[in-house]
Design a protein around this nucleic acid. Structure first.
Lengths: 127, 127
DNA sequence: CCTAAATTTCCATGTATCTAGAAATATGGA
DNA sequence: TCCATATTTCTAGATACATGGAAATTTAGG
């Protein structure tokens, strides 16, 4: 993910209706949710929500498929993971964070030093 | 971090000058950078940049201290980690991501399933 | 074809944001 | 005090975004 793309994603997530819609979609998982269902859940008129869904879609963090008369939206969790990677990237050079692959578990592992995330505690004699 | 706060942070990071300034500050680490240094690096007029730094500061992802005539800005990496936690939160319920504390290493560990971050591979007989 | 349902596109209005010139504020040194 | 430096605040105009009513599009069923 480059800086332009990440700006597009941040912009997409920087509006309440959109962020709440995205979170609903992440929670909904692979089944996704119809535009109408999201509209009803958020209490946002369908045409307004459509504008926002289109915004999310353009940013690439949601995708959609038609199912009969409904259009089902899906969170693109992959993109979200890329965004997290982008955020953590700069930290790696400061020994604040570390990203590696665990092939046994089949996952990416991000380690964030606690002196970064828990600054209230005294730092250990470690760096 | 709640949804309102995260919107404020996403909004702060959704503009090129601000995101680039923030990344410079992350790279700069605890020493930080003066407003003038950032302005010069980005090629953005000081008053324009001041507007953006104030935006970042209001969102809480940078802080500042005065040093003589300069004002030194610092990335609030803690806030960035909270933001990552907020993003990952919804995934956890879907077994896509997981956050835990490793007390021996003194860090937070985020595990992101590869079927999330590496969708090009075939998924195992798992879902 | 006709009607209903689900969603999007078009459009106008109001609001917020971005930008940079000019003026103001804060600091350091002679 | 006076001057130079560093940064912010004020201000105005241009641009972009959010909202929702009305019309258009797409699909389903008779």
């Amino acid at each position: 993910m480059d800086i332009k793309e990440s700006i597009t994603v941040f912009d997409a997530l920087s509006q309440e209706a959109r962020l709440r819609a995205f979170r609903l979609l992440v929670q909904a998982g692979p089944d996704g949710l119809s535009a109408g269902a999201i509209s009803e859940e958020l209490g946002t008129p369908q045409n307004t929500l459509s504008f926002h869904l289109s915004h999310l879609s353009h940013a690439g963090i949601v995708s959609s498929r038609r199912e009969g008369r409904s259009i089902i939206y899906l969170a693109n969790v992959d993109m979200m993971c890329e965004l997290i990677g982008f955020l953590v990237e700069d930290c790696c050079s400061r020994e604040i964070a570390n990203i590696r692959q665990d092939k046994k578990k089949g996952c990416s592992i991000i380690e964030l030093a606690n002196y970064c995330c828990k600054p209230k505690k005294k730092a250990a004699a470690n760096g």
